[in-house]
Design a protein around this nucleic acid. Structure first.
Lengths: 219, 219
DNA sequence: TGTACATCAGTGAACGCGCGTTCACTGATGTAC
DNA sequence: TGTACATCAGTGAACGCGCGTTCACTGATGTAC
């Protein structure tokens, strides 16, 4: 979206780190208090800049939120992809791991803490209010779902399982349940261990519903 | 929460209708623009009052949001309960209806349009930020889940089915998928018919995963 | 039924505060010679 | 290596606007006699 930068500007490095620090601070503040209640002043304070720095880097608060949402969604897709590559590279699926645990390991890179869940909720609610942004958001969610489809197909093949629904639907359901249980666990003052346990339990149920073990031909 | 009202005040009727009109207007405005961006002025304008009327009826914008959330959640529970009573009263489950359709009929009273979904998202995100409110919110969601548990048990018994998970978990999953698909369908500029079709399709899958038809003993 | 009075729901002007945004500036960094 | 100049990222004061909230008031409704 920026102009073509054929030669490196003056102090490009520091400018980019300013942007990054502002975006990081904004992620926290948007999550903590929401888009409407988050003030530019508060974001800048958190990042250690004045408001001028903000407007030197972003056109407006709203434009910055959109950029943050895009960055977060992209990172999410990359993180899931990288984790899944890592899992696949490990050969067969770490025998002592159950199927559920493999899927949870693939998803828990997306940020399962309270603040990440809040930020995702802000992003999702914003998508409901803005059709153009919704399209971009849904596309990124779709990419995550596609990654899970691959993973499911790999598990099904490696372990001789069957699916009760097409793998795309299975992946969609799993991602949906993931965000539902994340939201609920963010509400109930659970500590991180309890949150993880709840997620494991509920995702486990869904995975068991979706996968079915074939009549064993080998141990 | 209000003081005991042993005798009817001056013009109680009109005061209550003012509150109700303000709450209705607030539901729309909170859904449209979010809690932070919704101004008291805009709510009052929508309801046809001045801001003085607002502060004559509510202590603050935030307190009003909390009251609205409570009212909305209570109405939701009542609506589901009433609908389920109605379904049960109709004797056996309207033979041409599938199980999915029965469950959808039970849930679609909670408001499946874009604005209701947005308001529920605002309420849910607010619950993530406020432990006390979260407890109340989760309790009301739990009541809806309990109603669905009853309905599922009834269906299972009437149609000689089996469940792959305990009915409470089945109900929780169904309610979770319901809100996930509502959110997604609110994003993609679908018209109401398409939204209903999407919901039917995805809920149908979940219901099919959760219920299993017993080896038919009778047609 | 008619008059005088009490109540109080809703009005609307006023408050000051904090917001998003702008902009003339400064001073650190990089370049030219 | 040293000096003069150019760049431009980030500063911070200033803007005016719209916000949430307050409060003295008005006038419709209900009560007493």
């Amino acid at each position: 979206m920026t102009d073509s930068e054929t030669q490196i500007p003056h102090s490009k490095r520091s400018r980019e780190s300013t942007r990054a620090r502002l975006l990081d601070a904004a992620a926290e503040v948007f999550a903590e208090v929401g888009l409407g209640e988050a003030s530019v002043e508060r974001i800048c304070e958190r990042a250690g800049f004045t408001r001028g720095a903000f407007y030197s880097n972003f056109a407006s608060k709203d434009e910055m939120f959109l950029e943050l949402a895009t960055v977060v969604a992209r990172e999410r897709v990359h993180a899931v992809r990288a984790r899944i590559d890592e899992i696949s590279a490990a050969g067969d699926f770490n025998p002592q791991d159950t199927d559920v645990r493999v899927i949870i390991r693939a998803l828990d890179v997306v940020g399962d803490d309270r603040l990440s869940t809040l930020l995702m909720s802000e992003i999702s609610i914003r998508a409901m209010r803005d059709a153009e942004f919704a399209a971009a958001y849904l596309a990124q969610v779709g990419e995550v779902v596609e990654e899970i489809v691959q993973l499911i197909d790999d598990i099904v093949e490696a372990e001789n399982l069957e699916l009760r629904v097409p793998s795309h639907d299975a992946a969609r359901i799993i991602v949906g349940v993931w965000s539902d249980v994340s939201a609920r666990s963010a509400m109930s003052g659970l500590d991180p261990d309890e949150m993880a346990a709840l997620r494991t339990r509920e995702l486990g149920q869904i995975v068991d519903l979706v996968l079915v073990r074939r009549p064993q031909s080998s141990a």
